[in-house]
Design a protein around this nucleic acid. Sequence first.
DNA 1: CAGACTACCCGCCAAG
DNA 2: TTCTTGGCGGGTAGTC
Length: 318
Amino acid sequence: MITSVVAVVGDVAATFELGIVEQVFGLDRRDVGLPTYDFDVAAHRVGAVPTASGVDIAVTHGPERIAEADLVVVPAWPQLLTPAAPSVLGAVRAHVEGGGRVLAICSGAFLLAQSGVLDGRRAATHWQFADLLRRSFPRVRVDADVLYVEDGPVITSAGAAAGVDACLHLVRTEYGTAVANALARRMVLPPHRAGGQAQFVETPVPVAEAGGDLPGLLAWVDDHLDRPLRVADLARAVHLSPRTFARHFGRLTGTTPHQYVLGRRLAHVEELLETTDLPVDAVARRAGFGSGDAMRYHFAARRGVGPAEYRRTFREAG
DNA sequence: CAGACTACCCGCCAAG
DNA sequence: TTCTTGGCGGGTAGTC
C-alpha cells in the first residue's frame, strides 16, 4: 500500500511531467472515492528550483524526505548525464533496496540509472534519449519501443504522456482496476488508455486520427466483450480485408487485434473479480472467454497470480 | 495435462 | 517510382 509519495527534482524541474505526478498523487479526490497520499516535492537542497520557462518552484524538502516515502517518482531528469547529488542517489538506492517502489517518466530514467537501481533491469525512456541511455549505462536493458516497463519495483516510461499510463498502471497494481478507472475518468482519459498488461505494454494507446472507424470499433469491442470477436469479423465490420485491417490496427494501437481483445477481456475480468461475487467461470463467460480454463491460462500468464487469489487479495485490502 | 485442432499474424510478393 | 492492398505460407499461440 502506498501512502507517501515524493517527486524528486534536480537543478531544473520539468513542469509537465511534474504536473502529471501531481495530478495522480498530489490532489485530494476523496469525493470520488480515490485514495489520498502524503505528496511532496524534494530536491538535494531546499529552495527555489527553476523550470525551463523561467518560473520557479519552491521546494521545501531535502533528500531525507525520500526515506519516508513508499513511492519515489522522478518526473524527469533534464540534466541527463549530469550526476545527481550523492545524497539523492544514495537515498533512491536505499529506498529500492528497502523494498520501495520507484517510477521514472521520460528522462527520469537517467537519475535511476545513475543510482544503479536500473542495473540488470529493463527500462524505458523517451526515444530521443534511448541511445544515450544505452551507451552510457550498458548494464541497463533499454527498451525503446514500449510505453512503459515494469521490472520488479522499478517502473520507467517513455515520453511525457506515457508517464500518465505508467502512473495509472501503478495505481492499478496497488489499488485495482476500479480505482484506476475512476482516476482515469476524473482526469478525462479514455478508459482504454489504462491498458491491462502486467509486465509491459507494447503501445495500447489508440490515437483518434486517420484510420476510419477504428476508434469507434474499439469502443464497440469494449461494450461487447462477451461476444466471440474473431479478427475476421472485426475486419468485416470496418469493411477491410483481414490483412489490411491488421496492418491499420497495428499502426494505430501498436498491438494486434487479437492481443488487444485479450487485453480488454482481462481488464474486464479484473474489474468483475474486484467488484462482484460472480463465480470465476461466470466472470470468464462475461468477459468472452470460452471457458474458465482459458481465462485462468491468460490471467495467470499476465498477472502472475490466479483469479481467485487476485480477488482474495483485493478483498482483504478492502 | 497432453494432444489435436483452429485462429492468429508476420514476412513475402504480385498487383493496382 | 513509391506506397498501399490483400492473398498465401507456415510457424506459433490459443482453444477445447
